[in-house]
């Protein structure tokens, strides 16, 4: 029994340390090129905006964060170990032009597909993490995203670790056809299995989380968190507009709309995200030896 309290003391200590630690977005090299806020159109230097976690200081808009940068924002420094680094698509449909397109994106993006998975510490809590990258083909889910996600959940299951997912995706990857659709079944099924085994799954929805991703693993977390104003929904606004031939209400499908309709536990600003994740991890710690 005394071990529990000693453990708690240590965690409290690391949480306090975290509170004093500045989240700096993991900047290493200087970059003074300009970034325009997509919402208010104000200009900033890249370094300036990166230090502010890519949140516009004027209008509060949460800009896109690459998966690598997101991991630096969430994981304790130097703790992230990536899994399945080189998994790359086998182009199941032999879709014209797809393989070359993927190669080009891999070369500029540096990653092999639209998700990065691995294990890290978050405020001292060992956690399996899956972060989608909307800079890679709109973060679309094909076979690689589905497989890496599934293996990450399996790793969490067999090591009795919590699982945190950061979703950021336009939906299923068209170029892999039905193989992409099947990833919805695969990822949802592994989450269901993980859940029944007592595993804790926190899903963070960021801009945008749509289609095949929102209609599978992303919306069924034990806890669902959204970033302010993130677009979250099944059908894209353009498709809905075309179908019903009406203008859409203001704020439609935004995080605040999802919260109001009961699909999101809380909206958390990026500056508070790590703290919130830590606290929830602490509340869901398993005490078993």
């Amino acid at each position: 029994m005394s071990g529990i309290f000693a453990n708690k003391r240590n965690q409290l200590f690391s949480l306090k340390k975290l509170r004093n630690e500045k989240i700096d977005g993991g900047i290493t090299e200087e970059d003074n090129s300009l970034v325009v806020c997509p919402s208010c159109k104000h200009e900033y230097t890249k370094d300036f905006i990166k230090k502010r976690l890519r949140v516009c200081p004027d209008c509060g808009f949460h800009m896109t964060v690459s998966a690598r940068e997101r991991i630096k924002q969430l994981a304790d420094k130097g703790t992230f170990k990536e899994h399945n680094v080189s998994m790359s698509t086998e182009d199941p449909l032999k879709f014209p032009g797809y393989k070359n397109k993927i190669k080009d994106i891999q070369n500029t993006n540096g990653n092999k597909d639209a998700v990065i998975t691995g294990v890290c510490n978050i405020g001292g809590h060992k956690t399996v993490i899956s972060v989608m990258d909307s800079t890679f083909m709109m973060g679309s889910m094909g076979t690689v995203v589905g497989e890496k996600f599934t293996q990450a959940v399996e790793y969490a299951m067999s090591n009795k670790l919590p699982f945190v997912s950061v979703a950021c995706s336009g939906g299923a990857r068209m170029q892999e056809g039905m193989h992409s659709l099947m990833q919805m079944a695969k990822t949802s099924a592994v989450i269901e299995k993980f859940s029944k085994s007592g595993g804790f799954y926190m899903s963070i929805l960021t801009h945008p989380t749509m289609g095949g991703v929102s209609a599978s693993f992303a919306t069924i977390g034990d806890i669902v968190i959204a970033e302010p104003r993130a677009l979250i929904g099944f059908a894209g606004p353009r498709v809905i507009k075309q179908t019903i031939n009406e203008t859409l209400p203001k704020g439609f499908q935004r995080a605040e709309f999802q919260e109001e309709h009961g699909f999101v536990d809380m909206i958390v600003e990026r500056k508070d995200l790590k703290k919130t994740v830590c606290r929830l991890l602490e509340y869901h710690e398993r005490n078993e030896d």
């Binding site: 949802s188 929102s214 929904g233 099944f234 059908a235 809905i240």
Partner: peptide, 17 residues
Amino acid sequence: AYPGIEAEENGQSIAIA
């Protein structure tokens, strides 16, 4: 699945998931 305003308000994504 139906792409409509009400369908989204009532949770089309999570119902399918």
